[in-house]
Design a protein around this nucleic acid. Structure first.
Lengths: 200, 200
DNA sequence: ATTTAGTTTAACCATTTGGTTAATAATTTC
DNA sequence: GAAATTATTAACCAAATGGTTAAACTAAAT
């Protein structure tokens, strides 16, 4: 049959259940069922629920964060980077729509989880972006903006519509398909909005 | 002593616990302890955990949503409304920082909860805002923008920094005080950013 | 072929948890 | 002020839940 190992089946099942129901809402039995194995085998590979969750969470965190900040290390212009990030990240989140709420929610409840895995790497990127913003402003290509607001605005407009999707769908009276079209439009709309705000 | 009734004490305690730990993470015993009453009294006033939660959730939902959309029914300009909303809503969220994650998370897991309490009221506001945006665009005060993106951008930039606060604090290397100063700055920064993007 | 190490399961277990009951205390009604 | 209604509690209970154990099965090592 498939040569997918039991440990992998567990990890995949656990990811699905934890992402949908959170640490507290998830049941070890449900994970076992979904993985098609016995509950005892969960504890054989991952000692406890906490440890299984940690394993899933860290994997998700590492699929979530670096993707954002990598983009800013190429040698493109701010405008190009903004377009690239919006395009890639919205596509990524369309495949993982529960991810932001899962990761950010867990970080809000246990902020130290961030400290453990991702250290100072993140903070450096702000400086990198800040320097580029300053340089392009001096060249007269864009107006000046503080990097901490630039980043916040960019990420907010990209990520928040995924977290607030039920609310937005209701307000806009979109069904799921229409909403995904709407998110696709935002791949152009958000960069356009940002670059308009940065016009000199 | 205080003439605060047991039912109120329960509601308050339940709010705190549910907001912090969610429906699944909350324990009836902890709520009872925090309210300083017996666990059986919880079931005396609210029949079940589900019902107590529902009561808390609906109260929070109604403190969360209308505040947003009321602003748009005055006779002020878009610019004035954007400033007003940012100012009021950031101040409100500073007092209830866990609220967005709580409400939006529960809506993501059980979208029908929105259907129950807040009906068609919401969707109408989009049209109202859309008409004003169009009118001011025709007057040449702002450039044209689709209301569904205008609203999304505005709300995202206001609300998301509360949901992502631990991440942002880490990235920006702010402690809690510095982060609250940062959020205060956003009361001016976000409207300025939006109006810059809307310049003709 | 036998041993050895690794994998998987069924049956159990202790604790936690939401919820109930029956009795007691406080308050209101008449 | 007695009766009746409402509020509050201590003690319990059944179900669910994370976790364990000892046995059985599999596959590699010798």
């Amino acid at each position: 049959m498939t040569d997918i190992t039991a440990e992998e089946k567990i990890k995949k099942a656990a990811s699905e259940v934890f992402l949908l129901k959170g640490l507290d809402g998830a049941r070890m039995q449900e994970i076992a069922d979904k993985a098609g194995i016995n509950k005892a085998l969960l504890h054989y590979y991952y000692r406890s629920k906490e440890q299984l969750f940690k394993s899933v969470f860290e994997e998700k965190l590492l699929s979530f964060l670096p993707k954002i900040f990598q983009v800013f290390h190429s040698d493109q212009t701010i405008e190009e980077k903004v377009h690239l990030l919006a395009e890639r990240y919205i596509d990524f989140l369309k495949l993982n729509p529960e991810l932001p709420h899962f990761v950010l929610g867990e970080l809000q409840r246990r902020p130290e989880r961030l400290f453990e895995k991702i250290d100072a790497k993140l903070s450096m990127n702000v400086d990198v972006i800040g320097m580029q913003l300053k340089k392009e402003a001096q060249q007269g290509r864009i107006r000046e903006i503080a990097p901490q607001h630039f980043i916040a605005n960019l990420l907010s407009m990209i990520v928040f519509p995924f977290i607030a999707s039920p609310l937005f769908m209701k307000v806009l009276q979109y069904d799921k398909d229409a909403y995904y079209d709407y998110l696709d439009h935002r791949k152009k709309e958000v960069p356009a909005f940002i670059m308009a705000a940065l016009r000199v």
